[in-house]
Amino acid sequence: MNAGIIASRYATALYRYTASTGRAAEVCAQVERLLADPDSLKGMRLEPELQRFVSLLIENRRTDLLKFILQDFVDLYYRSAGIKIARLKTAVPVPTLEARLADLVRARTGCEVKMVCEVDPALVGGFVFTVDDLMLDASVARQIELIRRQFIEKNNRIV
């Protein structure tokens, strides 16, 4: 029930510690890799700040909240640095769209934008653009799914 409060307190502590050592960016990069794919860091050394932090969690028996804390830390870092993470998923690579959307976000929010682009042929066409908590799903796959659901509702038959 208090997972949110506890996680945010630990995340704030980790952020302030990494800010004081001046290595917040490196720690954040490693944390993002850890969150995306824990196996990618196998055999590699953790940043010393992270090592100390994990020891603290083990000592305080809060390791079950690690995922929540790391997610909060990443959000806190980017918020403090004034950077917005924007994710663009397209069916084929479209560099012009990436540049346009990045400029759009920069103009609307006034913050620096970090674009993360991904190509996913399963979208069939169109794109899925996510910034902060907002997502614009303009993919053909989603349109087909919406049409399919409306057909099912209108005809009372699973299509």
């Binding site: 995922k67 997610q71 614009l136 919406l146």
Partner: peptide
């Protein structure tokens, strides 16, 4: 006719990610 009347609005939706 149903196809013509199908609505596929495009708008920003608020999303989240499942953590657990």
């Amino acid at each position: 006719n149903q196809l013509k009347g199908v609505q596929t609005p495009l708008q920003f939706e608020e999303i989240g990610t499942v953590l657990q």
